[in-house]
Design a protein around this nucleic acid. Sequence first.
DNA 1: AAGGCGATGTTTTTT
DNA 2: ACATCGCCTT
Length: 847
Amino acid sequence: MSSFDEHEAFEAAVPLSRRAMAARPAPYLDDLNPAQRAAVETLDGPVLMLAGAGTGKTKALTARIAHLLTSGRARPNEILAVTFTNKAAREMKDRVGRMLGETVEGMPWMGTFHAISVKILRRHAELAGLKPNFTILDTDDQLRLLKQLILAADIDEKRWPARMLAGLIDGWKNRALTPARVPSAEAGAWNNRGTELYEQYQARLRTLNAVDFGDLLLHVVTIFQAHPDVLAQYQRWFRYILVDEYQDTNVAQYLWLRLLAQSHHNICCVGDDDQSIYGWRGAEVGNILRFETDFPGAKVIRLEQNYRSTPHILAAASGVIAANSDRLGKTLWTRAQGGEKVRLIGHWDAEEEARWIGEEAVRLNDGSHVSAKRRMNTRSITRTQEEERRAKNNLPPLETAISNGDAFSDIHSRQLLNSETADIHRPGGGHNSSQGFSLDEIAILVRASHQMRAFEDRFLTIGLPYRVIGGPRFYERLEVRDAMAYFRLAVSPDDDLAFERVVNTPKRGLGDKAQQAIQVLARANGLSLHEAARMLLAEGGLAGKGAGQLRAFVQGIDRWYAATQRPGYSHIELAEQVLDESGYTGMWQNDKTPEAPGRLENLKELVKALEGFENLQGFLEHIALIMDNSSEDAAEKVSIMTLHAAKGLEFPVVFLPGWEDGLFPSQRSMDESGKKGLEEERRLAYVGLTRAEELATVSFAANRRVYGQWQSALPSRFIDELPEAHVEVLTPPGLYGGGYGAAGMASSIETRAMKADVYNSPGWKRMQDRAASRPVTQPRETRELVINATALSSFAMGDRAFHDKFGYGTVVGIEGDKLDIAFDKAGIKKIVARFVRSAQAAGDVPF
DNA sequence: AAGGCGATGTTTTTT
DNA sequence: ACATCGCCTT
């Protein structure tokens, strides 16, 4: 499993497949534009691919890999391709495979910075004072460890919180600073004891044979720096280096890359300085801005042709980002024509904003069961866009499709074959009932996650299906982490952090006192907690019912460990056994709180995830780095997520709510980082706008509840930066209780009367002007939302019903189109009937 | 040892 | 408003 073995295995396996590939023509080069093509064919020396939003960056990157392979320049194991997320890595693997028409026998060095670092570090662990089987701690373990150290150092955690220290240490690690290298100017950090605690923390990690995420990179960098021979080996192996999202690299990652690229300089970094939005967690825009100085002779290739958005959307995004000063500068353009202007609308408060967006989503969705294909016929598209779409959905290539006479065998498709663009306008600029957007094509992008609540509340009542992207990750959930701790104990009984976590979960009557006794014994005798607990029992140092419980716990660990040692044990059975015998499953079964069933479900899911691995060890080794929120759910839903989470995604319809000064740009960002902070916020606005393919709607609310207090706000300064020619100001229909132009805004001004600048705010003035110069739009004809037209008539008192969010329940009241439903797990709720299915239709298994 | 109550701090998030 | 956390009570 070591990187060496894998690497060497490829030496033998590759020549064959390379021959096979070399014989093939290079079709992937044909549909690249000149800039993409240059980026693909410039193989030697440093290359910076500045790829604006929607310019086919991933395509160029994957084509470059394909080109390296087919041209015989490199074997799969000689390419180091680094991404930030597992998702990006997976996507790249898939696309390279698809491009070459065969699965390249793996690319062992394609992965995240962290995953690749783990591979390297396992092989050279001893150079970092670790054993090769070190464990990777997550932020939770990290925090608990720090708390212990703070306690031991007799520091008041109230005044000097562990979280702050963790942030400090992470920051140092992001900058590749070992305790010894922390600049003296920062020695005063954390009450003068920051570096001291950092040092202790690192020592403690070493004894635990553990690393945190930051260490993965830091250790590799330190090893490379201290052991030129090791570095030289990797430099020889990685003949070509590719880096995605380079604008997001931190100092440690930059050094990591620079060390590896030092000898041959064959490094290609792809990124967009305008999309750097992770400065707050250590990303250095400077890395990409400095590329040409860092790598002399670098070729900079700009990808500026956008295949994603309409001209209005592009112009609006460009207008906003133009206000930033630290830019390399790009000008996005498109061949696409037509499309709607970016819409701008003000609301009285966040609830109204959510209501309006909900109605809009429903209106746009109307006719959702018309296939996307049919709608595409009336859309302005480019050939590349269409081909990308086909690739994404595993559809046959355009040529095939047309000869087969599928939905695209119309005049527009032929047009697409003959020219690069087919400009097909949606009639009237609007949608009629026969060509709605799928809910999957609609996204709401917010600045801060607390904004999501208004949307969830609203969508729940109107029953609009939605999904929240991001949020707590599967493996971060309490129950999953507890279960993992049990698995860790089964695999390595001496894992003290895991022991601590679950020794009293479920409650075993082992409180502070008992745990202290174990700790003391462990420290005095240099034992693990597991061993110390055994000793404590032998000595009879524990009285009462705790003793029996602890004995069962210790013996359980022994038994589970023994099971893992038996050759050919079933790790899935063992996992179930562990959760069962420990009483952990029982704990949740007895729990009557509404979240208990969900937690049990997650545990089931966790056990199911084990199937993909050969044994528990393998699972645990990879889990920290690889597991994600996958449970993909096929049902059509509107997506709600933060702007950060939206990077890299695209949607035909995008709503951008909450554009108010203080919220977006975030006050805190500006306070803490000044102009730099503001510019990062502006990039966030740019990211948001450029997610939209066809329709973007910016909105703001005059009033919003912030920490329980009503506060009014002014339209975001970014609204001023939207170029007027590309924006349509919607006057909200009176139907919805008035928007910015109605009484709503007027009273918001009254509430802010103390602020003299209100009437003079450029954003406000411009809003007034725009509104005045346009006739008031008639209230839209609001179509009845019919998602489940039969629902109304089909429910009677006492019927069983199913709701996406609340699960199963019984109808206990009917009131017009609203049902009172007593949910099994969530209590009684009033739900709009069309969003409830009958229990039979939903099937028997909840969720 | 465990449940209740007041102080507290509230962007963004990956690995 | 709201959730989390540590302390305090039982």
